[in-house]
Design a protein around this nucleic acid. Sequence first.
RNA 1: GGGCGCAUAGCUCAGCUGGGAGAGCACUUGCCUUACAAGCAAGGGGUCAUAGGUUCAAGUCCUAUUGCGCCCACCA
Length: 881
Amino acid sequence: MSERMLEKTYDPGQVEDRIYRMWMDKGYFRAEVDENKEPFCIVIPPPNITGELHMGHALDNTLQDILIRWRRMQGYSALWLPGTDHASIATEVKIVEKLEEEGLTKNDLGRDEFLKRAWQWKEQYGGRITQQLKKLGSSLDWSRERFTMDEGCSRAVIEVFVRLYRKGLIYRGDRLINWCTDCMTALSDAEVEHEEEQGNLWYIKYPIKDADEVIMVATTRPETMLGDTAVAVHPDDERFRHLIGKTVILPLMNREIPIIADEYVQREFGTGAVKITPAHDPNDFEVALRHDLPWISVIDESGAMNENAGKYAGMDRYQARRAVVEDLERMGLIDRIEDLKHNVGHCYRCGTVVEPLISKQWFVRMKPLAQPAIEAVRDGRIKFVPERFEKIYFNWMENIKDWCISRQLWWGHRIPAYYCQDCGETMVDYQMPERCSACGGTALEQDEDVLDTWFSSALWPFSTLGWPDKTRDLEYFYPTSVLVTGYDIIFFWVARMIFSGLEHMREVPFRHVFIHGIVRDSEGRKMSKSLGNGIDPLEVIKRYGADALRLTLVTGNSPGNDMRFYWERVEASRNFCNKIWNAARFILMNIQNAGITEPRAGELELPDRWILSRYNRLVEEVTENLEKFELGIAVQKLYDFIWDEFCDWYIELAKPGLYGRDRRVQETKLYVLNHVLLNTMKLLHPFMPFITEEIWQYLPHHQEDSIMISSWPKVDGRAIDPEAENRMWAIMDAIRSIRNIRAEMEVPPSRKAKVVLVVDRQDRSLFEESKIYFERLAWASAVQVREDREGIPSNAVSAVTGKVQIFMPLEDLVDIEKEMERLLREKKNLENELARVESKLSNDNFVRKAPPEVVEQEREKRKKYQDMMDKVLKRIESLKK
RNA sequence: GGGCGCAUAGCUCAGCUGGGAGAGCACUUGCCUUACAAGCAAGGGGUCAUAGGUUCAAGUCCUAUUGCGCCCACCA
């Protein structure tokens, strides 16, 4: 028994760091390979080392921590594996920015020096976000912390690259790729964000060679005409049929280019004739391949016109656009200019308009990898929660194109490809070969480029467990159990982990993908740095505590849906913390005066049996909700149970016993109070780990040193007691009625009143035994239970519930007219209810087709309402006298 | 162009496999009742977007429509 006493309000600042340290010191986060236990594993979506904890992380990690803590308590060997991502582009951009402040560029430093800086940066800031995760209470196994560029993960990357290359699934070639002229690197399709923008459609006349005719094309990017190598029309388009095979003189460049026919052309759009710029448009590139057209690059990697652009060389692409249009106008070749909304691709990191360029890059051949990944979801080996995201996943996987994986950056995994400087041979290997496999030369150079940052993330579920080595961890924890992440990175990450896991492990990387939405501001806008509307989770923790933040994030959250952040909601969560804190305080105060005794059979009173029954139902439901990833529903039930049933009802119902003389009764009450609180703290622990631990530490009668290693409550089927529930419900119903009347008549609690309860014979003992609760909870001075209404003065107020007719002789307060009004209102209500029930029961189809128990329910209702109606009518009669 | 989500109390949102509409905040009234005023008790407030349909029964399932939002896509 503890001598310590709790403060009147819960102060998370006093508690959280101390408890987290205790958990760490005791090694509770550490998961062991234990053949006697089932494994349960989640790998964290590794936050970028550039990152600081934002609400998205807070939500994502709260959900993971809930699942992990719950499964750990259930007896699984639960591993939550932490780590960070090197975030190739994002980090490199930051370091370049920092260099700029010093007046330096990447190239001033050179590759080696730059990487040294990058690693320094990683050492300095890489741990920042992991420290912040601790503030949230995340029960991550820090002994297994990984980094996408640590030695093991890097080995995995090389292993995968070499394997895929040897299998023919990685290749290098000149393709039209997305290029960011600001980041100066190639991007994958997924890294391009399309936005609709207001633009123009220029109609340009191209003169036909040796004819007095022009063919008009329409384009949104006039500057690219400098690189045109054809004009295309639809093969069946009568308007142009006679021109197919002829050539046009490309204005400004005076280059002869052919008119070709291709079905790609939409006859209805623009003029029906399309200029073909293979080097700067993905469609045109495809057309050029089909027709064996040359391609001419006119824009360079910085977004400026190159030497192929004639007099426009050196101009920025937008400058060139204006110049080209001006020149064409002067020549009378612009027919007209229309407004047009169209999609423009932007770099997902810096927002720069992406330039399609032809470039030699490395690619992963996707089709063969995508197929098994589609099947794994289709046949249910992987399940998305909620399911609708499977559709999005299929749509992406089924239309996937080869993945451009090389990046013209320095921070990242360098591509393990080596080129012979003598004969140009390409070799891909685990390390640099001694000599060229073709010519035997020794002058070899490694590819300058690094891999897409998502290439290493794709391996995360197994690279972190030791792959390519056959480790015990890998054997035991793979496939992992759940992946928890936002819908915004399904393509970047989830999809790629799935095909990578299947390809390299021959097994799915996880069983469930639990998708959540994003946290928005109170106006529903995305939180962003530029808007300055972000809420810092650490500030929330500081002001209200981590538990309040976690509760806020999970309450009302349904899978896959966005949510808005309100400080008012955090306050409500904080209030709940305080509520349970005070419930615990109350129980502890009483435990100091008496002990706890496990009750013998028959010693439990009605409220005790009621709360134990309700508690056991709660265990059942919460567990079920967690299994279905319905975390928001689970926590709502906990909230309601603790606040309403336990605090507002049971504690009040227990007080008479606690404050009575009978020590045995006191100890029984304390047993039940402690038992229910202890176990609801367990149920609540995954959601609110700190306060539940703190309370646990104060409460007596548990074996384990910490709530986080205690066992998840099990349902005691014998405790579920529908009869106790019904009986208690009847008492509560009557108490509520009395309170209602008193409130309506504005009787203050200080004024006690006599209460007469008229009941049926079979309920008499129930109400006799429950008198004390009416005294305590309904401010009754004396309670009389009887089976007849003889001698009840007419100047009493009354109410009717299912089981009891209540009279309160409040002589001086009673206004007969008002009383009559209330009775007539009651009568009206009952008439409505009866009419509704009657309409159902008189419907032959209902009685015949509805399930018997539903029909029975309706019949019971009818009886109940009729009883109530009888009583109300009698009361009305008696008042009339 | 295709797909998805949302539309429920003044505000923000829950509502799982169809069986008499819920929470938090806000509002009204009364209470400092020896755990908690960050609290207690009582209360007001909703033709569950619209129109059809399935069913004995629809907020819940189906179809269409409207509004808002998101994702994907090669009509220049």
